[in-house]
Amino acid sequence: MEGTAVLGRLNWQLGEVVATRPETPRTKSITLDVPGWTGHRPGQHVDLRLTSEDGYHAERSYSIASPPEDRSRVTLTVERIDTGEVSPYLTDELHEGDQLELRGPIGGYFVWEASMGGPLFLVAGGSGIVPLMAMIRHRAAAGPSVATRLLYSSRSLGEIIYRDELDRLTQSSPGLEVAHTLTRETPPGWAGYRRRVDADMLRDVAWPPDQNPLTYICGPTPFVEGAATILAGLGYGPQRIKTERFGPTG
């Protein structure tokens, strides 16, 4: 086990929404200015707490999408779950100038810092890209020599979060390769994969096992289970595969 983070008490603090930005029709990035933010490691998350006028609370966890290099600016990217209690508030109701109560950073396991080296293999399903994006952004700022591959599964072209930024980074940041797969709809002339992540795809995209890559997988539970099990079966050491599961499923 590495990255032993001994945290002091995590207090609730207020952040102010300084920018929001739709990423896809169902996701929005929210940038908070958090005075006194002590910094975070890419992959960590925060807990948000919403409070209604009569004192009712709801809490949820959201990964940090921004790199530590952004200092006290903390960006989250939230996918709207239509039946959800918290995510529709964040994507629809919250706007610039509002305040949000949060505490963090939380989590010392699903983290990557440039000093941990690579090669790095990132596997994202849907909004599971969020903590991996913090790693990619941090890599671009602090560790551009770490060879990195991202395999990113989305439903359709329009649902790829951070698509332009990923395109730009693959141009400007040598050693970063991005492979997309689309599972529901593909546009005409689509050159990427067009199916769910499977063993052949992982064999194609992952660094070979003898390079002992450091692997991070994030997304809905069945996606993470599937990819992690396949990689373990292909001979990747389970100790080098870290997973984070977001969404409740059955």
Binding site: L14, L50, T51, S52, E53, Y56, H57, A58, E85, Y89, E93, L94, D98, Q99, L100, E101
Partner: peptide
């Protein structure tokens, strides 16, 4: 602190 506009379920 109150989250403006939050009703909750």
């Amino acid at each position: 602190f109150i989250s403006r506009g939050f009703k909750g379920r």
